[in-house]
Design a binder for these strands. Sequence first.
DNA 1: GTCTATAAAAAGATAGAC
DNA 2: GTCTATCTTTTTATAGAC
Lengths: 180, 180
Amino acid sequence: MSRPPRARESVLDAFEQLLVDDGERAATMDATARAAGVSKGGLLYHFASKDALEHALLERLVTLVDADLAEMASSPEGPVAFFLRTSVMDDDALDRALIATSRLAQRGSAEATESLRVVRARWAEALRPHVRDAAALDLVLLVSDGLYYNNALTAAAAAGPVPRGVGLDALVALVERATR
Amino acid sequence: MSRPPRARESVLDAFEQLLVDDGERAATMDATARAAGVSKGGLLYHFASKDALEHALLERLVTLVDADLAEMASSPEGPVAFFLRTSVMDDDALDRALIATSRLAQRGSAEATESLRVVRARWAEALRPHVRDAAALDLVLLVSDGLYYNNALTAAAAAGPVPRGVGLDALVALVERATR
DNA sequence: GTCTATAAAAAGATAGAC
DNA sequence: GTCTATCTTTTTATAGAC
């Protein structure tokens, strides 16, 4: 896997950021090219169509999830706590890719929806051995989904209703008690 | 409050359904008019602009949430169980309005985002007296958000990863044990 | 690899007939 | 109240120069 050209990565970064910060409607090819500092023609050399651009974002997501699963498996606090804590958006690469993908899914992209389904299934498999039963697994996954959903809604704007700091500690402790 | 004309309601229904089933991109004024069986001019008589159409959807949401809060308060199984069970999309009017609104919010509509925030705060206030502490309230709200998020993603398509039947019973019981 | 210019379609909105 | 016709802007995509 040779590393892709810099300009290509810049375009993909810009597309992702527009999706996350300004929503799906704002992430046009024109706006993406402008934000990446290339012309529309330049963008279209790297990504022949909007579909190609979206597809590349989904490939990036898969790569980042692979890394996250590895980190989760060897996390000192345990996979469940690690999973919940990292569900609170920290503006890292995985969070951005995940929110951007969920924007595409909600615009109606079948491929994006399927990617989210696959990613969620992989997390579920990694967590299953560390919780009591099926309901406990549902609980952990749904709390994580809830955290992402709230982050996805509030975008770059005001601090949402998502718990942080002491509140997050209490929530994680509560979920661990209920599911272990 | 006089009841609005039939055609106006048909247009609003069609707009809502397009948002829920096919995503925000598909819910154009043209497509909405076609789905409602009126012309674009006919639609624009009732809703002078796309903003007006979206605003009407948010008003419908508020009305439906008022009714839901009343029902929740007098629910025999208790507000928490009622709240969680009705978070699993049953394709009722409130579910459709809520999912449609969340599509608008993710397109970047500030008014839709604010509506969701207000609605969530009202639910939080209604639930607060029935849970142990702040972390327990977070837990209930986040599980509900997670359920809606998954329903919003899977749209009309294949059965999502959301628990139903026996699985839902077990989840509700688990949350009640953890938060009461 | 990157650019400019431009075509083709779709979107929101206006005007005015009926 | 509802329609058709038309205008403007935006978005995706193509063609071809450099």
